[in-house]
C-alpha cells in the first residue's frame, strides 16, 4: 500500500492528459469540421488532408515523430508536452469527423432559413448549426473520452509517468504484478463507468424535447 501515492501521481497525469487532449481536440475538431464543410476548396482540402493523415497513421508513430524527430528540426518538447500535443492533434482529427457527421445530419434548410432572416454565414453556423451539431456529437464525445483515457497509457513509451507507467515501475520493484495491474485495471474501469454515466446524464439533459435519440455516428473503436 506504500505504492499508493505514486499510483495517485500517475492517475493525476492520466486525467490531465485525457481532459486537456479532449478539450484541445474539441476545439481543433470544431475548426477542422467547419473548415471541411464550409471552407472553400483549399481550406477544405487542407482539413481533409490533415484528418486523413492523422487517422491513417498509428498514434505511436505520431508520438515518436513529435518526441524524437521534432528535436532535429529545432523543436524539443518535454515528454509530457509531447504527449499532450500528440494526443490532442490525434483526437482533433477524430472529433472533426464526428462533428462533420453531426453537422451534415442537420437539415440544410435551417441554414437557409437563418440566412433569410439576415444572419451572416458565420452567425448561422454559430447560432443554428453548432448548437445542434455539438449536442448530436455528445455520445461520440463520450466514446472519445473513454478512448483517450485508455490510450493515454501508450505514452509511457515516451517516458511519461502516467498511471500505467507508474504501475509497471512499482510492479517491477515489488514483483506484485497481479495486485498492481488488477488495481490499475479497476481504476480505468471505474473511471470509464463514471465518465460515461455523467456524460449520458448530460446528454439526456440537453436533449431537444420532442426529438428522439439521434442516429449514431460511426465511432472509432474504443477497445
Amino acid at each position: 500500500m506504500e505504492s499508493l501515492p505514486s499510483l495517485l501521481d500517475g492517475l493525476y497525469i492520466t486525467l490531465i492528459l485525457t481532459f486537456i487532449s479532449l478539450i484541445a481536440g474539441l476545439f481543433l475538431g470544431i475548426g477542422l469540421a467547419l473548415g471541411r464543410v464550409y471552407g472553400g476548396k483549399i481550406v477544405s482540402a487542407i482539413c481533409i488532408g490533415y484528418i486523413e493523415i492523422i487517422r491513417g497513421t498509428p498514434l505511436l508513430v505520431q508520438l515518436f515523430i513529435i518526441y524524437f524527430a521534432f528535436p532535429s528540426i529545432g523543436i524539443t518538447l518535454e515528454a509530457i508536452d509531447a504527449a499532450l500535443l500528440g494526443l490532442s492533434l490525434n483526437s482533433g482529427a477524430y472529433q472533426a469527423e464526428y462533428l462533420r457527421g453531426s453537422i451534415q445530419s442537420i437539415p440544410s434548410g435551417q441554414m437557409v432559413a437563418a440566412r433569410t432572416i439576415g444572419m451572416t454565414k458565420l452567425q448561422s453556423i454559430k447560432n443554428i448549426v453548432l448548437p445542434q451539431a455539438l449536442r448530436i456529437s455528445i455520445p461520440a464525445w463520450s466514446n472519445e473520452l473513454i478512448y483517450l483515457l485508455k490510450y493515454t497509457s501508450i505514452v509511457y513509451i515516451i517516458q511519461v509517468k502516467e498511471l500505467t507507467a507508474e504501475g509497471k515501475f512499482i510492479a517491477a520493484e515489488t514483483f506484485k504484478f497481479l495486485e498492481i495491474f488488477a488495481i490499475i485495471a479497476i481504476i480505468y474501469l471505474v473511471l470509464t463507468i463514471v465518465f460515461s454515466t455523467i456524460i449520458e446524464k448530460f446528454e439526456k439533459k440537453l436533449r431537444i424535447p420532442g426529438l428522439g435519440e439521434k442516429a449514431k455516428i460511426g465511432l472509432r473503436n474504443a477497445l
Binding site: 442537420i106 437539415p107 434548410g109 435551417q110 437557409v112 432559413a113 437563418a114 440566412r115 433569410t116 432572416i117 439576415g118 444572419m119 451572416t120 443554428i128 448548437p131 445542434q132 449536442r135 431537444i208 426529438l211
Partner: peptide, 20 residues
C-alpha cells in the same frame, strides 16, 4: 445583402424551423 434580407421574409414549404 444581409441587411436587405431582413426586409424580405421567407416562408418555406418545409418550415425549416430551428429544431433546438
Amino acid at each position: 445583402i444581409n441587411k436587405i434580407r431582413q426586409k424580405i421574409g421567407f416562408v418555406f414549404q418545409e418550415f425549416n424551423l430551428f429544431n433546438h
